[in-house]
Amino acid sequence: MNEFISPDDTRYDERARALVRIGREAIAVADDEKLDAYFADDFVFHGPDGDLTYPELRSFFEAMRAAFEGFACERRTIVSQGQYIGCHTSMSGRFTAPFTASPIGTIPPNGQPMRLELINIFRYHEDGKLAEEWVQYDNLGFLRQLGVDLTQAPARPSVSA
């Protein structure tokens, strides 16, 4: 049994299958035309490091593709209801080039495989375009996979009582 959902799996509605396709065909590989058609102009991404606009998220995808050889964006679980989709997404690849979009600055490659597991909630406009996304993932675990030594974090200022 394949661990990822196929875009042809008819157990899922068309909106869910389109989400699978966009991950494979326009996030994992560069296809700005497909992305532009999928995302609403007023799209907002809400993630662990703050909010992003669609152009900012598209730049993040570019940075992922550049840093991770064989980059993939696959869906594992999808629950679709009305204008919302809940999803478990897996992003993966081998870390072979500098990653410029980390929350701590550019990270040099370590040549190791990376797998980032995300929990997403997507909201769509009535016209079918993606309007909003909320994402949670283990940012510290992701940085560890990239070879970041988290014991070297800068000291936090003390708070006096």
Rank of each mutant, 00 (worst) to 15 (best):
T106N: 05
D51R: 12
Q83M: 08
L52I: 06
D149I: 10
T151D: 15
I85M: 05
R24D: 04
Y137N: 02
T77E: 13
P7G: 00
V159A: 03
S102Y: 11
M91C: 07
A26D: 08
P48H: 08
D138S: 08
P98D: 00
R75M: 15
M64Y: 12
D138H: 08
H88E: 08
P157W: 11
N120P: 05
R156A: 15
D41Q: 09
L19W: 01
I78T: 02
A72M: 04
R21S: 01
L118W: 06
I85K: 02
D36E: 15
H88F: 03
S59T: 14
R21K: 10
T96M: 06
S102T: 14
D41A: 09
T106Q: 07
E74M: 13
I78N: 00
G23A: 01
F68C: 09
G86V: 02
D36Q: 15
I78A: 00
L150Y: 14
G93W: 02
D127Q: 06
G111S: 11
Q81N: 13
D13M: 02
K129L: 12
I5T: 12
G70K: 03
E69L: 11
G70T: 04
Q81W: 12
I85S: 05
A97Q: 11
D8F: 08
G50V: 10
P108D: 06
A101F: 06
F61L: 05
T100P: 10
R58G: 03
T89V: 07
M1E: 02
A155G: 11
E74P: 10
R17G: 04
S102M: 11
P154N: 00
P55C: 03
C87P: 07
E56R: 11
P157F: 11
Y54V: 10
R115Y: 01
D138Y: 08
A161M: 09
P108I: 09
G47V: 05
L116A: 12
I107H: 11
D51W: 10
F45G: 15
P157C: 09
F39M: 10
Y38N: 06
M1V: 04
G82D: 06
F95E: 03
P109R: 14
G128T: 01
E62F: 12
F95M: 06
R76F: 01
F43I: 13
L130M: 11
C87W: 10
L35W: 09
A153L: 10
D32Q: 15
I85V: 10
K129G: 09
D127W: 02
T89N: 04
D138G: 06
E132N: 03
M114N: 13
T53M: 15
D31N: 10
D138E: 09
A16N: 04
Q112V: 00
R94W: 13
S59F: 13
